[in-house]
């Protein structure tokens, strides 16, 4: 397994769009070729080496290539976008659109991620050990076709519109979230261990959402279907007792969306 190390070499002012930082692009390229890959900053293109010191070279294929980013890249967008294989480890925080449209491979972010991580992803694993912003695994603005496959894990908190338009795959969030989680969801699974503010599963017609903590304001178009305990979704287990709901009846006559809300954490439901 070949490893390429990228070390940020300066403070970045205008954010950089670096969708070339993927194992797919690095595979088969030597150090100098990687340094010459072009990234956008505002209206201009610059070589990657303007922003990073490069060590090592790509493997023979994407699968054989690991990229380690040594430091904070919270002003670099689109890291790992559209990647299909291989691995990226970010030893800091990333900017927007990390793993956006990724189809395979693995990304680990040891710090936080800005908004849009795993937007419209179709496969692979994206693991963010810190917090994330809005639109985790969701559709791009204007579209209702969000994450289709793969797994997105956030150990900390995330904000709004998680899994918007999601049709498949899994999102697992260790902390709490804000509004409109699973809006327009038609498939897939979202598990949130902490709390949510409001509109969980708004306009959903399929898929499953599990909220372990408290939901401040519950979605009005949901109908109670009793209780279930110790949920299992293949390898994902949610222990405890949950109130089960179906919806969103505001959007469809016979919706198949399911929301589980922790029984003890939601005494008013």
């Amino acid at each position: 397994m070949a490893e390429v190390k990228l070390t940020p070499n300066k403070e970045i002012d205008l954010k950089v769009e670096a969708d070339v930082i993927t194992p797919d692009e690095f595979a088969g390229k030597g150090k100098s070729e990687i340094e010459q890959l072009l990234v956008w900053q505002g209206p201009s293109q610059y070589p990657l080496s303007d922003f990073f010191d490069v060590e090592g070279e790509g493997g023979s294929s994407a699968e054989d290539t690991t990229i380690v980013i040594n430091g904070d890249v919270s002003r670099v967008k689109l890291i790992g976008a559209k990647m299909t294989a291989g691995k990226i480890i970010v030893k800091g925080s990333t900017g927007m659109h990390v793993g956006s449209q990724m189809a395979g491979g693995e990304i680990v972010v040891e710090g936080d991620a800005d908004s849009w991580p795993g937007m419209e992803m179709t496969g692979g694993v994206l693991h963010i050990k810190g917090n994330a912003g809005d639109h985790v695994g969701s559709a791009y603005r204007g579209s209702w076709h969000g994450m289709k496959g793969g797994r997105l894990i956030i150990d900390g908190n995330a904000r709004s519109q998680i899994g918007g338009g999601m049709t498949g795959g899994e999102i697992i969030i260790g902390g709490s979230i804000e509004n409109f989680c699973g809006i327009r969801q038609t498939g897939g699974l979202i598990v949130v261990k902490g709390n949510a503010i409001r509109a969980v599963g708004a306009e959903m017609s399929g898929g499953t959402i599990v909220i372990g903590g408290n939901i401040q304001k519950f979605t009005p178009g949901m109908q109670n279907e009793g209780e279930e305990s110790d949920l299992e979704f293949e390898d994902i287990k949610c222990s405890g007792t949950f109130k089960k709901f179906r919806g969103d009846f505001a959007i469809a006559k016979n919706p198949k969306g399911i929301v589980y809300a922790g029984k003890e954490t939601n005494p008013d439901l």
């Binding site: 209206p43 559709a139 791009y140 603005r141 204007g142 579209s143």
Partner: peptide
Amino acid sequence: FMRPEDHYKYNKPK
């Protein structure tokens, strides 16, 4: 106006 999703995957640089 209505279709940002029509734009972001189809763009040409100057």
